[in-house]
Design a protein around this nucleic acid. Structure first.
Lengths: 398, 398
DNA sequence: TAGAGCCTGGACAACGTTGTCAGATGCGCG
DNA sequence: CGCGCATCTGACAACGTTGTCCAGGCTCTA
């Protein structure tokens, strides 16, 4: 068992149900027939288990487990002082080649590896940054995460990341756990809307940058897409192609991006002088069931919408499915680009944001905070791109 | 600047070019016209920058940056001993409610947060595990990563992860850097084929599980999909639908999964008594350019292939693009499931592996190592599923 | 050959926490 | 009033590393 005291558990959060809410597995198509291989599999798990040839080496030997050699051990073996070993390990000058060789031999012989925990304790900086996002498995966050990692790597730092699962409490747990680890900085895709809990941390020097959505109740750097403008453009695009009854399906309104995109939708409609009807707007969870229901409702009745604006990639995917079942041709513009969107019939017109750029920009900003000391918090907005592929250019079919 | 000494840099790797090789950005369709928003953007970066209202709080106040309060400070302020604070922080028994209240007040007033580095140093366990994978941005690894994270979370551990970018050297750097951080365990999707460098670490008690591909030159737990069987089934499926000239496009042969899938291809062909021609097999990088060239070659000439087996998700996506441009109907089965595969015309038949299950199984195995002490290394093979959607059932079009 | 200066190596404290152990305090009871 | 006991508290060492500082030996020059 991992040694986690009660208080520690409180921080990290040992919640009962690990609801992996909305992994792409849900999005992956599971239609069509399924043939399962069946070849000497374990009854219970369906796994095939093959024992490896040898037992784990040294499992019973005299080697002490979990008792690693220290610099002291290396020093003793090499017949030198403790600090000399430190010098060799860190490549500091002032060691004769001969001594260095002896130390190196001892290191190799003992399998010594410097304990970075102790190093961190002594030096104060951990050379690691934390990333709190919503769901690592969401294709939108993959590139973002990778971009943050690349920037971290370029600065010699490691990346610790965790998923909040869109739960504000879990976001806080994670962020604070990372602070307890003394990460040098924090990149946060917020789930909650009150981040005052971070104030002591920021004051203590933890660099902090928010991405995709702004921080709540504190001043902090934030890097986001132009959600309002992007949505407005997308909806205006539909209007320009003759649509007037346009539906909007988005995420829960408490999520900043969802609210902004809705605002963009309203603005575009207003600009065109089209009064928006309540039945055209549906905000809520983005699981396939709800989205499907919402879409089907908009598409039924005496005056169905002729076009749908989908508030994010998950919504778009489900709406595509629903539209594929319709006899009428309904126009669609989605927020976020989607893989293979160009190969569908028709191609899916989207308002694309560059998630990698979001991550990169945020991480760079983070390290600038770390390098250069203090600057005024800024809000950096990245433009979106309207990519027309067909679905957004369909004329209204009344 | 982050404090990273030369030797440290050596470990973490401060490589010159940060080639974010093959992020999904490459896969995302960029066809169709593009309209860029242009609204008071910064000339150089294309960002829109809006200064936040206030200056960062305390930026110039007397608060000492990077000088956090310690338990000693809390103790002094609460007028109690050091150890009493420790007791309160850790929820240990033996503290009067009154004392506890005083300590808690001091903690809140000072914004104290326990330094886990020191804690780790003292206790030996870090309650964190490392994940080395190929590319966080690859949709295949997102769910895997998330699954590992969930299991870690259930055990009160945090997840540190890094991308090897399919570079063995970088894999080693990362893994060893994680060991220096004293992660309790390591989940590795290996890029290289020699992992003897991990021997001292494993001996020292670092739990280690390999995923997706087996370890090289050491005995270690490994969790992988039935690549051989899956590929054989997929190819047999094509053969069953009348194909004989079947192409195989896969990843570099040094990658275990690629080699196994090729073996499956050969086996299926042999089972059917079809001699394989060299021109039908193409192994190498999976970037769109090479895959496209490979596919186009197979499809030209006097005796073109009538079906293609795509060795992984990236290959499949590119092959779909190429096939969409062909006048002839060519059958396709791909390894790995793909989002929206069911909505294409025809739907894409795939051999699906459950990447989340891979991650979950591996992480659970890791914590079992940590909990239960030592067991013989095992090889756990997860079954694949053939999902038929149309593209794999097309008859040969000669 | 002596003194100055440089190079190398090592002793020691400190980082912030936790485990050990002993001391202090309060209480009940004989 | 004194004793034992239970409860609470705090002093101290240790975890493994790095920074400071000093000692000893060497080379070089006068």
């Amino acid at each position: 068992m991992l040694d986690a005291t009660s208080s520690y558990k409180l921080l990290i959060g040992a919640s009962p149900g690990c609801t992996t809410s909305c992994t792409p597995a849900h999005h992956l198509a599971r239609t069509g027939s399924v043939a399962e291989r069946d070849d000497k599999t374990d009854d219970r798990t369906g796994h095939r288990i093959v024992p490896e040839t040898t037992r784990r080496t040294d499992s019973l030997s005299g080697t002490r487990y979990g008792n690693r050699p220290t610099m002291k051990d290396v020093a003793a073996r090499a017949g030198v002082g403790l600090k000399t070993v430190s010098r060799v390990v860190n490549g500091e000058p002032g060691v004769t080649p001969d001594t260095e060789r002896r130390v190196q031999e001892a290191i190799d012989a003992l399998g010594f590896r410097r304990n970075d925990s102790a190093r961190v304790l002594r030096k104060g900086r951990t050379a690691s940054i934390g990333l709190v996002l919503e769901d690592l498995a969401d294709p939108f966050y993959g590139p973002l995460s990778r971009a943050v990692e690349e920037v971290a790597r370029a600065h010699g730092a490691l990346l610790i990341n965790g998923s909040s699962a869109e739960d504000p409490e879990r976001e806080q747990e994670l962020a604070l756990a990372l602070c307890a680890r003394r990460v040098d900085g924090l990149v946060i895709i917020p789930a909650g809307d009150d981040h005052r809990y971070l104030e002591p941390e920021i004051r203590a020097g933890v660099a902090t940058v928010f991405v995709d959505r702004p921080a709540g109740r504190i001043d902090a750097d934030v890097v986001l897409s132009d959600n309002y403008g992007g949505a407005r453009d997308g909806v205006a695009h539909l209007i320009a192609h003759g649509h007037r009854r346009i539906g909007f399906i988005g995420d829960m309104p408490r999520i900043h991006t969802a609210a902004e995109r809705l605002r963009g939708y309203r603005a575009a409609m207003e600009d065109a002088g089209i009064p928006v009807e309540d039945a055209w707007m549906s905000l809520g969870q983005t699981n396939p069931e709800r989205v499907r229901r919402a879409a089907e409702e908009m598409l039924s009745g005496p005056e169905p919408v002729t076009a749908i604006f989908a508030g994010n990639n998950r919504v778009t995917v489900t709406v595509i499915r629903v539209l594929a079942e319709q006899s009428r041709r309904v126009a669609l513009v989605g927020f976020d680009d989607i893989e293979l969107a160009d190969l569908l019939q028709p191609g899916v017109t989207v308002v694309a944001q560059d998630s990698a750029a979001l991550g990169r920009t945020a991480a760079e900003r983070l390290f600038r905070q770390l390098d250069g000391g203090l600057v005024a918090p800024e809000r950096i907005e990245l433009p979106t791109r309207l990519i027309t592929r067909g679905s957004g250019e369909l004329p209204p079919a009344d």
